[in-house]
Design a protein around this nucleic acid. Structure first.
Lengths: 338, 338
DNA sequence: CAAGCTTGCTCAATCGATGAAGCAAGAATT
DNA sequence: AATTCTTGCTTCATCGATTGAGCAAGCTTG
């Protein structure tokens, strides 16, 4: 490798000069189709050796400008602060690379403005496909992509204009609620009442989970009080405050809680600690999402773990099949044996 | 926005034709320096209107090919499975964007091969600067970057060839160890013995933390048994197995543990549960790294939280100052009041 | 030995955006 | 009226890699 400080980066023209050949021969050798272009293996080896020596790195911008396909696949993701999105990103990168694609990922912090901005930037980078994960306004992104002739896909939260791969939130929430109720019965001798806490009432997943929460109640002939549905947002502080407010109203007669994300669970646990519920098992918890430490918290918190590998498998299946109709594919979440 | 399915994406030439002007006028208007190029505001407005209507998105590859600077900043990161790296990535993206840079991040799963591969790809994308976070072989990456005339920087783990921003692992570990020993005294009536578990003996951070661990012991006139230093790797299973092996050797007389990451703590906690140490407070724990749920675990686990905002602030200071000498900047971690 | 084929290359146009240089028309100055 | 200045554009080369077309030299074949 050449350790001389160089102002300009090495190009195929530099290599061509060094090898006493043409840039097109160098290009053919370095991008691998030199056999097709009938370059002798002697010249090929010579060029590859020189490229190695010079520490040559392809100028992707020039290459992509000329080529028809970019092989770039984009993903926008709301946050990196939980295992769910963390594993989505990690596995997505892996699967993309395994398919010869270059993944670019950007985090939009649940900010609709930033989502649009990020999508536009991804389009500028000529992504072949954009996956909008947990987007607040997925259809807007789909429209932007469609205008640029780029396919898009929704993950985690569905949209009306592009294929969506989401968890089966209804079934997952119904089963989780059933388990919380069973645990209530077992540990407290009564079925609830339960609180639903966390998430945005306006997002599809939260709405479906609330529907599952209600269905599990009605399966057992139980009623759900409206004031026990607290779609207060995802942030820990919001969950904590919602519980404080509820306690102020004197409505502290709660047997268990359905917590709608690990992030909200942080706030719930903080509130639980403050209000002294710690180890007395007087509060039965369930969480829609998984975190390794939560299972160690000691309150026997039930968790529903979204099936990220399966979801991403579907994502790539949809991409590879070329489907762009707005179907919704629901993936059953993983629920551990009771 | 134009919703007609288009085979080709709109270019400045298309816009120029529609506006009855030249491509360079369109370019000047859209990249904002039309005043400098003396384009009339009438034409500018007309062009911007048409661009909007057509849903035009810049071809970044073409733009970058022509421009001298890419404004792309790259980061490689080992994992997304913990809060430390998650917050690094999230904040890095934010700070990069605030500086008009486009961040591209890729996860290399602590795989040295993948690190090199990722670095090469980033160079192909013409990054102006590459930040190697927690890299197993940072110097190799620095060499590659230097050969391409690209600056690089190490974060979390130091290298010998580029500026490094890392936590003050020695001081953090010394204080954490001191606290674990104090808690041992208070809760068990004896100072240890402590176990050090997790991390790689070969990495700088682990070595420094072991040094801090030893220093805190010697501060109190205590000895550390060699067999109580278990740098068994980061994965939870490895920590779990290391503890099993130790127990098999009959060496279960341990008062507390210094756990060298939240990831290792997962394994430790699993082992603790299995071996029945759960709520009896007979094991005093401390963890070098922070996780919100760990503070809720109930075993009064001490944590050292690395100061990510300060570290990234230093990262950008170094970048902006143009320093490329291999200095090591140590950032004190945050340790909550006792 | 002429005509055709194969091998191993080179030439030159191209991708889309950029910006230095240039040019025409009108305004201002002498 | 002649000259210079200003305004508001356009033209064209360029960035580096790619690829269809082309070409020369050697090899076959009838």
């Amino acid at each position: 490798m050449n350790h001389v400080k160089q102002a300009k980066r090495t190009t195929i023209y530099d290599l061509a000069e060094l090898a006493g050949t043409s840039a097109s021969a160098v290009s053919a050798v370095l991008n691998g189709n030199w056999k097709k272009r009938r370059i002798s293996s002697q010249l090929a080896e010579k060029i590859m050796k020189i490229a190695e020596e010079q520490g040559y790195a392809l100028n992707m911008q020039a290459s992509l400008l000329r080529r028809e396909k970019s092989h770039i696949i984009g993903m926008i993701v709301p946050k990196y602060d939980n295992r769910y999105f963390g594993s989505i990103v990690e596995l997505f990168e892996d699967m993309a690379r395994a398919r010869g694609l270059f993944p670019i990922i950007t985090c939009t912090r649940r900010d609709p403005e930033l989502e649009i901005e990020a999508a536009r930037t991804m389009l500028s980078y000529q992504v072949e496909c954009l996956i909008a994960t947990g987007a607040t306004d997925p259809d807007r992104i789909t429209e932007m992509c469609a205008a640029a002739g780029v396919r898009s896909l929704n993950l985690d939260l569905p949209g009306a204009l592009a294929p969506s791969i989401i968890s089966d939130n209804f079934a997952g929430a119904r089963e989780l609620t059933r388990r919380i109720l069973v645990n209530c019965e077992r540990r407290l001798g009564k079925k609830g009442p339960l609180l639903f806490i966390g998430g945005r009432g306006s997002d599809h997943n939260t709405a479906e989970r609330i529907r599952g929460f209600r269905a599990a109640h009605s399966d057992l002939g139980l009623a759900v009080a409206e004031e026990h549905i607290l779609a207060c947002g995802y942030a820990p502080e919001k969950a904590e405050k919602a519980l404080d407010d509820l306690a102020l109203k004197g409505d502290a007669n709660v047997g268990g809680m359905f917590v709608n994300s690990t992030i909200s669970l942080e706030g719930v646990m903080r509130w639980v600690r403050r209000s002294g519920h710690l180890n007395d098992d007087s509060l039965v918890l369930g969480c829609f999402d998984w975190d390794p430490f939560v299972s160690l918290l000691g309150n026997e918190i039930e968790m529903v773990r979204q099936d990220v590998p399966e979801m991403l498998k579907k994502v790539f299946e949809v991409i590879e099949s070329g489907v762009s109709k707005p179907v919704v594919i629901q993936v059953p979440p993983l629920i551990p044996q009771m």
